[in-house]
């Protein structure tokens, strides 16, 4: 699992400095929650980890983000493989304008994964999740005989992994936009996982969901953290307390405090963190 270190990261939009000199390490194989009041730069910090931030106009990034020792802002860095490695889950689920099936197949297809590679990917996935039945034996056998069988199997595995399979297995060719928002978010999760990321960035992934769907996503994260490093921006302290192992508190673009979630979220050292936790600033 990759190790992420952020060193002196400064991000500004035009003349507005959003992140001021952030230096922090993100632990591997854990859920790290980034918390803080609105507009403190949580999403900016998250999106700078896989350079999605560069889609904004007039954005300037200084400093380093090291993933396994390689600076992602190096001019020679391969942005496509970076984004493949560091997946992103947005606040509002946005299904690609295609069928449920194609939403999952999209990633493997654009990266040219086919045939045997797909089966290898599935085997790898099974090794990661031994106690979770992502690939039942009977579907595995049909995969060898059917046309596009491998891709069908891959789609099924990831939909199972995201806990969506049973709800959509009879309507895979339906446009993904017809799903409920909660289902769309699990679809987005399955889609993100389909390109074999090692890190998952999630930007308030449950904020537009109903409580039941939100819970499903949280449970998925708990399960996934064995194999992925998860960075989660969250608005709700309760969610951070429920699932985070590590926490980073940002305030007005500065990192005030970071450490194990139990400490930062329950017994913080800094006055500002205390004020935020107790609800004095929000």
């Amino acid at each position: 699992m990759p190790h992420i270190s952020i060193r002196n990261l400064k991000v500004s939009y035009g003349a507005h400095n959003v992140l001021k000199d952030i230096t922090v390490d993100i632990p591997d194989g854990q859920i790290t929650a980034i918390i803080g009041p609105s507009g403190c730069g949580k999403t900016t910090l998250l999106k700078s980890l896989n350079r999605l931030i560069e889609l904004q106009e007039e954005v300037k990034v200084n400093g380093k983000v090291l993933i396994d020792g390689d600076n992602v802002y190096d001019p020679q860095a391969d942005i496509l493989s970076l984004r493949k490695k560091v997946g992103f889950l947005s606040q509002k689920p946005c299904p690609l304008p295609m069928s449920i099936y194609d939403n999952i197949a999209f990633g493997p297809r654009i990266h040219g994964v086919k045939g045997k590679q797909i089966l290898e990917q599935i085997e790898e996935l099974e090794k990661h999740c031994p106690n979770n039945e992502v690939c039942p034996a009977n579907t595995r056998n049909t995969a060898r005989t059917h046309k596009n069988g491998e891709m069908d199997l891959l789609v099924e595995c990831y939909l199972r992994l995201a806990g969506l399979w049973d709800e959509v297995k009879d309507r895979l060719r339906m446009p993904a936009s017809k799903l409920s928002v909660g289902q769309q978010q699990r679809l987005a999760l399955a889609r993100t996982l389909s390109v074999k990321p090692e890190v998952i960035l999630a930007d308030e992934p449950t904020s537009s969901l109903d409580p039941v769907s939100a819970r499903l996503i949280e449970e998925q994260f708990q399960m996934l953290k064995q194999n992925y490093t998860i960075v989660l921006v969250t608005h709700t302290l309760r969610q951070a307390r429920r699932i985070a192992d590590h926490a980073i508190f940002l305030y007005l673009g500065e990192m005030i405090e970071q450490g194990p979630a139990s400490k930062v979220l329950c017994a913080p050292c800094e006055a500002k963190t205390c004020a935020y936790i107790s609800g004095e600033i929000s």
Partner: peptide
């Protein structure tokens, strides 16, 4: 076309042209 469609596609490591051709073009 909503910004999120681009973000969704690019965040999976798609190139800009793949994003245009497979995702944006459909919309």
């Amino acid at each position: 076309v909503p910004f999120e469609v681009r973000e969704a596609s690019l965040s999976m490591g798609a190139t800009q042209w793949q994003t245009v051709k497979h995702a944006l073009m459909r919309v």
